[in-house]
Write a protein that binds this DNA or RNA. Structure first.
Lengths: 232, 232
DNA sequence: AACCTTGCTGGAACGCCGTTCCAGTGTGCT
DNA sequence: AGCACACTGGAACGGCGTTCCAGCAAGGTT
């Protein structure tokens, strides 16, 4: 749009401000400095302008965060969302979201905050199509798809929280898990009997596999609805 | 603790500031004015004091929010967490959290934010015990319990977000659902085929029942793990 | 060539926030 | 009587999101 009137000049400015450039810079800021690092002042400095200029392209911080989340989620959904079977496709979609949150922890918080909006709908749609392909009866479509979505969102929020707190005291993921695991082991034996008993499973687990195990659990439940017994 | 030295005076002041009173006031503020309404200034005014005094009893806003969440969740877990069968007990625990979030939407956001901390652990423990009672093999305890927990957290976050946005434009829950449903119906038929097809199910659903249906789905999946086929 | 409109810029300023600082106060102990 | 000290509350600090507005460079109009 616009650009190149009829004369030669290819660009009239080194790099004019634009919504796209702003969102891009916001994502970089969020990735490097965390959710608290996204500031209109910091953003303005990075874009070599003032805070006021940003408001001409974006209505406020909420919209900016929304646009950033949308951009990341759209990318994640555009990438591999397929699989040989619907079951694999569900796992693939879920993993796509999981990995996106792993790479950009702030979208975990953001997805859990926003009401039924664009990025959420994208994920819901992709999950739902695979639910459909699984042969789930129509009456159960909504339940099955939103159960999957809500589980994904729950894990996402939790991962985002963990990323925040393990970054704050800059430890590695493994160290962090170890600390939490020993903390669990030291809980009151009566009040937290179960939690203590699985502290070991927390220490050794792999986040990604654990996440998939949860997806599989839900898929197994869904398979029960379809009436067709899933092969193990 | 403390109180009544040895002389008579039952209270040396009309009502001295205390951590308990502060948390209580914070909860009231959060319930009536929303998450944005909790301010040290507003809190100080409600307690007829200055912001500085509060910091003597509480280290900061994070701890205050944590304590408020803890108080509400502990109450919810203390109430009916039982049932004739482990399955009913799981539903009861989950519903307890669901209803608590319904009554205090802000804890939905808060639970999704905090890393593995006290209120979360309480819920995890209660869910886990019932998982144990279901006869799930030990190796799957962690997976089963955290799948349930993450689903509950996901729904909680979503409910909190919905409560925020339907309160902002003060509509009733039913009106809000209707609006979202028609919005879904007007989505692009190609890109959002599935979402459009379940717009009707969204409009008519009951939040609580839908939530339980998700729990049942996961329970069905868990039943598959135990090797015992669950009776429908 | 001179003018004006208009899309866009960026810095200053406003009000509110969480938090810190500190002079003051009332109580119990010696 | 005097002291120590737990506790109070108001003032002040730095930083935030947001608004306001004087300025500017390009295009179109005359």
């Amino acid at each position: 749009m616009a650009a190149a009137t009829r004369k030669s000049r290819p660009e009239r400015r080194e790099e004019p401000l634009s919504r796209e450039r702003i969102v891009e810079a916001a994502i970089e800021l969020l990735d490097t400095a965390g959710e608290a690092g996204l500031t209109f002042r910091a953003l303005a400095q990075r874009l070599a302008t003032g805070p006021g200029a940003i408001y001409w392209h974006v209505t406020g911080k909420d919209e900016l965060l929304g646009a950033a989340t949308e951009a990341v989620v759209a990318d994640a959904m555009a990438a591999g969302v397929t699989g040989p079977t619907p079951r694999d496709a569900v796992r693939s979609v879920a993993l796509g979201v999981f990995d996106a949150i792993d790479a950009h922890p702030w979208i975990g918080t953001q997805l859990a905050r926003a009401p039924a909006q664009s990025p959420l709908l994208r994920i819901f749609e992709h999950l739902g199509r695979q639910v459909q392909a699984l042969g789930v009866p129509h009456a159960a479509h909504f339940t099955a798809a939103s159960t999957l979505l809500n589980y994904v969102l729950g894990v996402g929020g939790q991962n985002a929280a963990n990323a925040r707190s393990s970054q704050r005291q800059d430890t590695t993921r493994a160290e962090f898990l170890g600390e939490v695991s020993t903390a669990w082991s030291n809980l009151d034996p009566e009040e937290y009997a179960f939690t203590r008993s699985v502290a070991g499973q927390l220490r050794d687990h792999d986040d990604r596999e654990e996440f998939l195990a949860g997806i599989d659990l839900i898929l197994a439940g869904i398979a029960g609805i379809t009436g067709v017994t899933a092969r193990p």
